[in-house]
């Protein structure tokens, strides 16, 4: 789906945020970018989204050039328009692309129901809880049926319980639709629970140090989050992260 080769980003301030990143994303991947604060995860994600250009190297969408235009993005904060209701917020990407208002509203309503917010169409963001706002944000990212979904620490600001629930729901949506996901996090547990591919990054300069896999068979274990394979993967990823930072 996307191929990053030799990607580097130096900001105007002189900070070398990431350097020498090679990464191939296959269709249907669920990939977690894991690393300590400041290792360039957000920078990398924003380059994949095309929001900023790499200073060196290239990001190509070889097999599927249209995928570059089919991206959903979820920020760390819900980033909703406070003056618009939930349904208008979700309908925004469709309306910007010229979908008639009514059709956009219908599709947005469907999407809200899929993230568990049926009945909250006409609520304004300030009337929603943190978790609900995040769901609206996810619905907005998915309403265009993107092939690539990019999430930048989407649940970092939420409490553990809400976060757990949203992780499960995201996983279900992914299993149903099989879009490609890049999920930025600095939680080892979250990365192992969600992702099949875990890419570990290190700072100064931001770079990829190793990649680990969580096979689908392991994930299929019932009660995965409390299973032995889960614990084993968490330990493995933690070690990788520690040696990356050493």
């Amino acid at each position: 789906m996307a191929t990053l080769s030799g990607v580097a980003k130096r900001y105007g301030t002189g900070t070398l945020a990431v350097e020498g990143v090679d990464l191939a994303l296959a269709r249907g991947d669920f990939l977690a970018l894991l690393g300590p604060s400041g290792c360039g995860k957000s920078t990398l994600l924003r380059m994949i989204a095309g929001l900023i250009d790499p200073s060196e190297g290239s990001i190509a969408f070889p097999a599927d050039a249209a995928a570059r235009k089919s991206i959903g993005f979820v920020f760390q904060e819900p980033t909703l328009m406070p003056w618009a209701t939930a349904v208008r917020n979700v309908a925004l990407p469709l309306e910007l692309a010229g979908t008639p208002r009514r059709e956009a509203a219908l599709r947005a309503t469907d999407m809200l129901a899929r993230v568990g917010l049926a009945g909250f169409e006409n609520a304004y963001p300030r009337a929603l809880s943190g978790g609900m706002k995040m769901r609206v944000s996810i619905a907005r990212a998915l309403v265009t049926k993107p092939r690539l979904l990019l999430l930048d620490e989407p649940f970092a600001a939420l409490d553990e319980i809400t976060r757990f629930k949203l992780n499960q729901d995201l996983l279900q949506l992914w299993q149903a639709e099989r879009f490609t996901v890049v999920f930025v996090t600095h939680s080892v547990f979250e990365s192992v629970f969600l992702a099949e591919r875990i890419v570990v990054m290190a700072p100064r300069p931001g770079r990829i140090v190793t990649e680990l896999a969580v096979p689908a068979e392991d994930r299929a274990t019932p009660e995965f989050r409390t299973s032995a394979p889960y614990a084993a993967h968490c330990r493995e990823v933690s070690h990788a992260l520690e040696s990356a930072m050493a």
């Binding site: 989204a49 095309g50 929001l51 993005f73 920020f75 980033t79 925004l92 910007l96």
Partner: peptide, 19 residues
């Protein structure tokens, strides 16, 4: 971030202004 979001979806200057 909203500005970025509008850019991601290819919003025109006019759309960014109005919306």
């Amino acid at each position: 971030n909203l500005v970025d979001l509008f850019r991601l979806y290819g919003a025109s200057r006019w759309q960014v202004l109005m919306r």
